[in-house]
């Protein structure tokens, strides 16, 4: 750990990712998140678990497919395979703004402090920072700008209507 930020604070991460090696019936105890494909194929088994559940999406997955499971999903993990690949920004905004998802949205992968300001505006509230990232710098990035022009997950109105 040591590189995890949630709700603007460094925290311990309570979640365990499903690595693809475990038997679905024999997952570690506690909060687990699984790839979207596994979620679709093993949904019934997973729902029987007495723990919180999450799902990790590819950045090409359609977030609309999660909507009916929102009440059972405490975490949606979105991926940044490269810093320059910004598809998950759209996924996050759709989850929050269009579909009203209230749980944790987490950024993983090439997560640098440069993106944090934008990520939080799109609805991300937790961040697995790339291991080389300086955590104090990342924490400072939430407030690096105080002016926002557009409506987004954190702001209902454009600046000209406020």
């Amino acid at each position: 750990m040591g590189n995890f930020i949630k709700d603007r604070k460094p925290q311990e991460d309570s979640w365990t990712p499903y690595t693809g090696l475990e038997d679905m019936d024999n997952l570690p105890s506690g909060d687990v998140y699984v790839p979207f494909d596994e979620w679709k194929s093993s949904r019934d088994a997973l729902l029987k678990r007495n723990s919180r559940l999450g799902v990790i999406l590819e950045n090409t997955d359609n977030v609309a497919e999660l909507v009916e499971d929102f009440d059972r999903l405490d975490l949606v993990v979105l991926q940044f395979p490269k810093m320059a690949d910004g598809r998950a920004f759209t996924q996050a905004r759709l989850l929050r703004e269009r579909f009203g998802y209230k749980g944790e949205i987490r950024a993983v992968g090439d997560v640098l402090h440069d993106q944090i300001f934008y990520m939080q505006r799109c609805g991300f509230n937790s961040f697995e920072m790339r291991p080389d990232q300086d955590i104090p710098t990342a924490l400072g990035a939430f407030d690096e700008m105080t002016v926002t022009y557009q409506p987004a997950a954190d702001e209902e109105l454009p600046i000209w209507r406020r």
């Binding site: 910004g86 920004f89 300001f117 990520m119």
Partner: peptide, 10 residues
């Protein structure tokens, strides 16, 4: 609208 648009900067 486009200045520091959070969704469309990457």
């Amino acid at each position: 609208w486009s200045t520091f648009h959070p969704e469309f900067n990457f």
